[in-house]
Simulated scan of single mutants.
Amino acid sequence: MPYQWTHPDPKTRVLSLWPHRSLPRRGFAAMILMAFVLGTVPLYGLIGTVFLWGLLPFILAVVAALWWGLEKSYRDGEILEELTLTPQTAHLRRTDRKGNTQEWDCNSYWARTEIHLSRGPVPFYVTLTGNGRTVEIGSFLSEDERKALYDELVTALDDMRNA
C-alpha cells in the first residue's frame, strides 16, 4: 500500500501517504531503451540510403515523447500527505510536486472521517472534517486502498479520543 503508519511515541500516530509507482526508475530506463531499439529495427534495412534520414527524426521524436510523458507522470506523482494524530490534535499537511504545502488542524476529539460513495471526484472519496473545514485525504489512492484507509482512520481517531 502506498501509505504507512508510524508511531514516533506512544501517544502519537503519523500516517504518510504517497501515489503508487507502478514503474520504478529502472523500468523507466528499460522502457526507453526498448522503445529506441524497437523503433530503430526498421531502419537497419535502410542503412546507407537517404530514407534512413527521413525516418530517423520521427523515431527519435517518438522516443522523446515517451521520455517526456513518463517524466511528467513522475513529477505529477511527487505528492506527500502526512496526518499526525495526538490525543489533542489532528494535523494534516499536503505537499504537492512544486513544494507548496497546505495544512489543516483540528482537535482530534472533534475530527470526523467520512467516506463519500459517489458524491466526490472519485468513488469512495475520503474526507476529514473538523474546525469548520472539510479536507480530502488520499484521493490519489485506488478504491480498495481508500476503503482500507477509511477503516484505519476511523480506528485511529477512536483510539486518540480514548487515549
Rank of each mutant, 00 (worst) to 15 (best):
M160E: 13
A65P: 07
G138K: 13
S118M: 09
L52G: 00
P10Y: 13
P123H: 02
R21A: 15
I59G: 02
F36T: 07
I137V: 02
L56M: 11
L15A: 04
E143W: 13
A35R: 14
G99M: 10
F58L: 02
T6F: 00
W104G: 00
I79E: 12
A30K: 13
G99H: 05
A61P: 06
P8R: 02
L43R: 01
R133T: 04
P123V: 01
R112P: 06
A111Q: 01
G130C: 14
V37L: 14
R94L: 07
A148M: 11
H116F: 06
P24T: 11
T49R: 01
K98N: 13
Y109G: 11
R25M: 13
A65M: 11
R97G: 05
R75L: 11
D9T: 13
L83N: 12
D151W: 07
K72Q: 15
R93Q: 13
L153C: 06
L43C: 00
S118V: 11
N131H: 12
R97D: 04
K147L: 14
R21S: 15
K98D: 08
T113C: 14
A156P: 00
S139H: 15
A35G: 12
M34G: 09
L17D: 01
I137N: 00
G69W: 15
M160A: 11
P19Y: 09
R25E: 05
F36L: 11
P10D: 07
V126E: 07
L38I: 03
P57T: 01
E71V: 15
W5H: 09
G27E: 05
G120I: 13
R133H: 13
P19R: 06
N107P: 09
L128Y: 12
A90D: 06
T12R: 03
L157C: 08
L92Q: 03
R119I: 10
E145M: 03
I115K: 06
A156W: 01
E81P: 02
R75N: 14
E143S: 08
L157E: 10
I59Y: 05
R112K: 09
A29R: 07
E71C: 12
L56A: 13
R75F: 09
G120L: 07
G69L: 14
R75A: 07
L38E: 01
A35V: 14
I59L: 06
N131G: 10
E145A: 03
I32A: 09
L128N: 07
N100F: 11
E103L: 01
S16K: 11
Q102I: 08
I115D: 06
F58P: 03
L43V: 00
G45A: 04
E71K: 10
L83R: 03
A90T: 05
L117T: 15
L117K: 09
T89W: 15
L60M: 08
M34K: 06
V62R: 10
L60I: 12
